[in-house]
Nucleic acid binder design. Structure first.
Lengths: 132, 132
DNA sequence: ATAGGGATTCCAGTTACTGGAAGGTCAAGG
DNA sequence: CCTTGACCTTCCAGTAACTGGAATCCCTAT
């Protein structure tokens, strides 16, 4: 299967698939004409990558996950530890965004948003300690 | 004021301040010895940058905000529009993270996490359609 | 005189791709 | 047989927003 087809079936752009090959995540066979030739198992692996990345795993973590995926004797606790750590990261990220949201939201609420130059948002951004 | 002091007072690393100068966000005076010399107003501007960045504005957006900050005749509606758009972005990002969190959390819950190789997380990541 | 702590510039690396140029391959149509 | 268009190849460069490091310079204190 050519890269275009593999791209379609995995949901990853062809460019990205080549990049993943550059960094050694997936190395397909080559056809006689030099084209990359992906097996169904390769596509599976690509989809695994696509899904892991979209779930917020870094490429490095995907590499770890792939080696666990390849290791038929892995212990599920290893995988669970990785995934649980990632959950914690997501939670921290959400909390951080929510606190930013709250501060910015307060600035926005205070701003009348008309044609006058006074603007609590600008003031909030430049004040030493925003909101007392 | 030397860059070290400006860094301390603005909460930005000196490296970052030099970078901001490279990209034209803030250009301080120079002392006779060639050292950068920051005024109190410069520090104010740096803090504005620090705060805006930490609130999730991109450097490009900070550039916009700075020009509004500099423009004494700006209309507050302009600033409000920018900030409101950013709020929407934050909300979208949070929603996305929460949905990732939910999916990954379900995989983690399903995994017994022991020394056996069966692992619903790996399976979830490699399945075509995770959790129907 | 020298030792330290800061300052300077410049170059390279990071993450995870993405865009583009120059060229090779293949199947279909005239 | 030739061309056209859609694919494929490699390689180089650029993105965002810094960060690290090397080589060198400046200032102050002992």
């Amino acid at each position: 299967m050519n890269i275009g087809h593999a791209a379609e079936r995995s949901g990853l752009p062809a460019k990205t698939i080549r990049y993943y090959e550059d960094i050694g995540l997936i190395v397909p066979e080559r056809s006689d004409n030099g084209y990359r030739d992906y097996s169904n198992e390769d596509v599976h692996r690509l989809r695994f990558l696509q899904r892991s990345r979209s779930l917020g795993f870094s490429v490095g973590e995907c590499r770890q996950l792939l080696s666990l995926y390849d290791d038929k004797a892995r212990e599920s606790s290893e995988v669970k530890a990785l995934a649980t750590a990632k959950l914690g990261e997501i939670d921290r990220k959400v909390a951080e965004l929510l606190s930013l949201r709250e501060m910015l939201g307060r600035f926005v609420d205070l701003c009348h948003g008309d044609d006058r130059p006074e603007c609590p948002i600008i003031e909030g951004l430049s004040r030493d300690v925003p909101l007392q």
